[in-house]
Design a protein around this nucleic acid. Structure first.
Lengths: 148, 148
DNA sequence: ACAATATCTGAAAGTATATTCAGATGTATA
DNA sequence: TATACATCTGAATATACTTTCAGATATTGT
């Protein structure tokens, strides 16, 4: 996850063989290599945007957080019911809800001793719902997705 | 990421107050609480499917892997050009390509000393492309997504 | 005020992940 | 064969993440 300038021993251009009419990128000599790399750098997802996208995927990369979101998709729920429903400790649920809250994916509402959480109305949740829809569609077409 | 049965000190049902006509789930007494939890468990994403989805998101949760995928979206590339283009060490690129390969997200083709990688034609990549399309659409609608 | 309850918080422990380094493998070329 | 090169691999290090534990905070009811 570090983004420091790469300065390892292999920063020199490689010089692998290539046919002239090839569609394959080549680095026969330093100039061509540098041109290819510069061209690549224009097309590649910029680091800061890659970082932002990766942060969203990081939040979605935990099965318990996915289950929390799926539980809240139907109704607002308090911490203790979420903990019981997911068979998680209440402290663990609270920690994970804080992660979701920091990404503006859930809202909370205090009522007496309880705190009710619900899906937020945010851009991150919009994207999450779209992804979920894609998952459902893909799963219907290919029930063995990601396992076969 | 452990999925062991929860057996902590707080597994007893909570008993928070509730109004009778409430849409809010209640756990006034043990029976209602258990019913709610059982109902919840029917609606929540099952653990094994949450695990599978989380594994895909885990692969997407690293900025360098997202950048590798974006580079390969346009053309097949060898390890050294990817390393130069992304300013990563070649060993790091190789390690990450192995992760992508294990999820069947990239193919490789050996040509002499070089190994050319390209996006695979797999269900995981289909889903990745759909997610990318959603990202692009959402980003066009909301340029400040995930940061505002 | 006191006890019980629901939630939150921070530290600790265990696990997972990413990169680097050193060296191994396999290929092309002099 | 010997050298250079591209890639891979495994160990080591550093960082990040998840859960648990103990205790803090806040609210309700006696």
């Amino acid at each position: 996850m570090t983004e420091q300038e790469y300065s390892g021993k292999s920063s020199l251009p490689c010089r692998h063989s290539v046919s002239d009419d090839s569609q394959v990128p080549s680095c026969d000599d330093q100039l061509v290599h540098l041109d290819n790399v510069r061209q690549l750098q224009l097309e590649i997802l910029p680091i800061d945007e890659a970082q932002r996208r990766a942060e969203l995927f990081t939040v979605l990369a935990d099965p318990n957080r996915l289950r929390l979101l799926s539980a809240l998709a139907n109704q607002e729920l308090c911490v203790c019911d979420l903990a019981a429903g997911l068979k998680m400790g209440e402290s663990a649920v609270s920690h994970q809800l804080r992660v979701l809250k920091s990404m503006r994916m859930v809202n909370y509402r205090k009522e007496g001793r309880n705190v009710y959480y619900s899906l937020a109305d945010s851009q991150a949740i919009d994207l999450y719902k779209l992804i979920c829809a894609q998952f459902s569609t893909a799963l219907k077409l290919h029930p063995d997705i990601l396992s076969g």
